[in-house]
Nucleic acid binder design. Sequence first.
DNA 1: GTCGATATACGCCACATGCCGTATGTTTTC
DNA 2: GAAAACATACGGCATGTGGCGTATATCGAC
Lengths: 224, 224
Amino acid sequence: MNGDHMNRPLTFILADDHALVREGLKMLISTMDNMSVVAEAADGEALLEQVTKTRADLLLLDLGMPGVAGIQFISDIRELVPRLKIIVLTANIEPRTVRAAVEAGASGYLTKDGDPEELGEAIEAIRKGGTYLARTVRFAVGEASGSGRQHAVPDILSPVPLTRREREILALVAQGLTAREIAERLGISPLTVRKHRENLMGKLNLHSAAELTAYAVRLGLPTA
Amino acid sequence: MNGDHMNRPLTFILADDHALVREGLKMLISTMDNMSVVAEAADGEALLEQVTKTRADLLLLDLGMPGVAGIQFISDIRELVPRLKIIVLTANIEPRTVRAAVEAGASGYLTKDGDPEELGEAIEAIRKGGTYLARTVRFAVGEASGSGRQHAVPDILSPVPLTRREREILALVAQGLTAREIAERLGISPLTVRKHRENLMGKLNLHSAAELTAYAVRLGLPTA
DNA sequence: GTCGATATACGCCACATGCCGTATGTTTTC
DNA sequence: GAAAACATACGGCATGTGGCGTATATCGAC
């Protein structure tokens, strides 16, 4: 971001739990000028190791990885290694998630069903110190000042920061457990679990365990 | 399978709703000898068009595509174009799904988190007229005769053929709708919906709407 | 024409859930 | 050290759900 315009190659960490997808992305990146993949990770633990061990410039992060509780992970990494820019790569196009990712410190947000060229555009934008949102989700953030959004933003919820406990309980609800089962597993009262769940539904604007489950699955939490 | 050992290149159709993933797979395949991708499809409709229009040898099918009601689609395509061999590519490793896919006529079953080399191995096996299952799911089918399975197969359910109505209701349950809402939408009694749901849970060995939802989402049904 | 599968519909019961309120102790933040 | 956020816990009430049984109409297969 200072004097190294485009001499030194940009280094990447690839984080995606699908080896086949990683392989494909590596191929894609290797066809670009001055780019190289220096590390890969298939789960959150491996990723944490790699981000501290390597000195990569960019992290291409699949939000659907096991052991990666989504958004929270972004802020964790930003705190740990501030110089590492994060590009989120996911199938999730919910406005809620996009906003949360950006506010957590992601520099880019790409969707898996987007135009492959967007990867290059995102890298370029971020190298210049900017941020990049995939065209498919750009409407989600309201454009801040732009000419005029074509679609109204559906739900105006704040980025919905979940507490640690809430995330924990969301993950268990997502596995189809009842309040009682969750309570047993956590060693607390079923009534407390219910309260947490109520708070979750309030924050996320959902209205049933099934919707919570769907939300969690789409968010990439493990479901079995 | 007859005289064309390896002169004519093998032609592929890629079906995956994620353009980025398709791009990566295309790269991967292009690095192999005598392989070429002749068509791509991002949804079920486009795919149906391509399978009839082109005369490809192999279909690499992501089971998570929108508009593709999973397994059912495999038998549909097999009926339509019997010469086209199907390799399923999915993140779903449920024994139930694996067995169902194979019985529906899939020649291969690869998982997205599997070893990328498996793609080559699968193609080779299928070219010889065999079938190929990813190592991560091979246990699911019981090996039929094999030396000895390392893990017992957890649930012994038959491949679970769902009726049209049941699939319809599964999709709606998966969106978090209550029995009443589903009944209104279909113009039938809520009690009937409940019965269908009970039958579904019986067939799939699930025990709550949340589990049904998780199942449907993993299966690739739309959830919003 | 009968049999089986499917779709339809109802009732009962125990239990879980969603929504409301209140309360207390702990931890984090300012 | 005060204020805010969080985790804990309880109660009531209307509704939904899961598991059970029963019953009828339709339709395609044999």
